[in-house]
């Protein structure tokens, strides 16, 4: 799970889920605790789906 998807692609990551920034990948301190939790829960959920998904090339999973 990374914000800098091009970096993840360059080093060869195969299953990628975008996060929202470098200093706070999974929770923007400017937003409410509830929103941050929802975002984190959702994106980790996407990561779990990615782990279950068969792929044949580097794939960025939509969030």
């Amino acid at each position: 799970m990374a914000n800098l998807i091009p970096v993840a692609e360059t080093v060869g990551a195969n299953r990628m889920v975008p996060t929202i920034s470098i200093p706070y990948p999974l929770g923007d301190p400017e937003s409410s605790e509830d929103e941050q939790w929802k975002l984190r829960y959702h994106r980790v959920g996407v990561a779990l789906e990615a782990l279950e998904t068969a792929i044949d090339e580097q794939t960025v999973f939509e969030v």
């Binding site: 914000n3 800098l4 998807i5 091009p6 975008p18 929202i20 920034s21 470098i22 200093p23």
Partner: peptide, 9 residues
């Protein structure tokens, strides 16, 4: 400039 989030970049 240089930024910290992909969308900003």
């Amino acid at each position: 400039n240089l930024n910290v989030a992909m969308d900003q970049k």
